[in-house]
Design a binder for these strands. Structure first.
Lengths: 218, 218
DNA sequence: CCAAAAGTGTTAACGCTACACCCATGT
DNA sequence: ACATGGGTGTAGCGTTAACACTTTTGG
């Protein structure tokens, strides 16, 4: 091997999830550059000379989408030699979670557009991004069951039903109300605020908040 | 950013574990190159132009240690700008597991030596390798409880007591014999071979094997 | 009084933990 | 007979899954 001749680019790609209504969405950008014109992809880019991968993921998130993540975590590094038609690029995938409330999307002139797409409806994406997306979904499901990660998908205060919708959107199946509540309260990661709100023409619901916005092992 | 000027090297580092007796060991190489002369590190190297990271990890394992892994998995990519004193190198860590039986270690002239070191006794390693090692240990513990990964740390046939030693070495605490056996048999990942062996001057023990040498979720 | 979501309690099955005793072997 | 690890059964406890009814509100 000739180390000095190694010529591999280092990039990051962000899988950005949110829950809207009772569906899981991914943030995608639409490419301009040929031969991928019009194709959708997850926002990514090259890593700067003095940046860590975490820094690069955060910067790219901001530059290409205007989103600020409540949660950002490295997933896996993808390295198939032909994964990028423009040359050899090794890319580290990150997962970002955001609360959809009050997010204003924007993008740079590098892309044709940016938008939330239903996870279930994501078609053929650029590069190996379908594979990356599937990987991220699996990790997200794991976090949901084992950590308090849901805090990053909700506003600071929320009702138990809203929380349940997040779980249902990610798991892809309905939960049993009583058991869901017992499970959440039993985990000791949320607390009642004492307040309540009307979400419609019926009995008001109590507002809860997560005790901590950091990840918790159980 | 000026993509064409990006000059970051891409490497892999292998964390290689085995269990000998009732202790967990890591395979380390001793460096020759200044300023890290005599310092111990985990075997690593640059990725080839047409190699995936998995391929590079496998190759480096073979070239630098003579070991062939029963299990190899990507862990995490480390990217602190000053992690390598020789220049900007982003490194993807891999975890390899081997059965210590009949392994012959060798290394290249690039290094002063190669040897198994007790995990508990690993001192200050080169680069950020202490951090990588800690990360790998956590992942190993997770696999032990949730997959059949132990198969890659044992010969094809083994007694339940030998299996228990592997669990104890990694968990760092003794297990309760009856519960350990019930747990292992209950997971449905091992099967009796019908054979038995004498491991000393006492009642012979039954030999078991893993039903599958692949990873199993539960 | 009706519709719609909010909210609560009990039971049964399962898995995990803790614990005590007999078995097969070589010396 | 004794020392050593090999091997088994049971009872209690906590967690989870399944299930039905009452409450509060607006219309």
């Amino acid at each position: 091997m000739h180390p000095s001749t190694q010529n591999i680019k280092v990039a990051v790609d962000n899988v950005i999830f949110t829950v809207i209504g009772n569906k899981l969405f991914v943030l995608l950008i639409q490419m301009k550059k040929k031969p991928l014109e019009g194709v959708w992809a997850m926002p990514g880019g090259l890593v700067g000379e003095k940046e860590t991968l975490d820094d690069a993921a955060t910067r790219i998130l901001r530059e290409e989408t205007g989103v600020k993540a409540g949660f950002l975590e490295q997933l896996h590094t993808f390295s198939a030699p032909k994964r990028d038609p423009f040359g050899r690029v090794v890319s580290t995938a990150y997962m970002a979670l955001v609360s959809a409330e009050g997010i204003k999307l924007r993008t740079t002139s590098k892309y044709m557009g940016v938008d939330w797409m239903p996870y279930a409806g994501a078609k053929k994406l650029a590069y190996d991004h379908n594979q990356i997306l599937a990987y991220a979904k699996t990790r997200l499901e794991w976090h949901l069951e084992h950590t308090n990660i849901a805090w990053s998908l909700l506003p600071r205060e929320f009702t138990l039903t809203e929380l349940q919708r997040v779980y249902e959107a990610i798991r892809g199946r309905k939960a049993e109300k009583r058991n869901f509540r017992k499970m959440m309260l039993g985990r000791d990661i949320i607390a009642s605020t004492g307040k309540s709100v009307m979400r419609g023409a019926w009995r008001p619901a109590q507002l809860y908040r997560f005790k901590s916005g950091d990840r918790v092992a159980k």
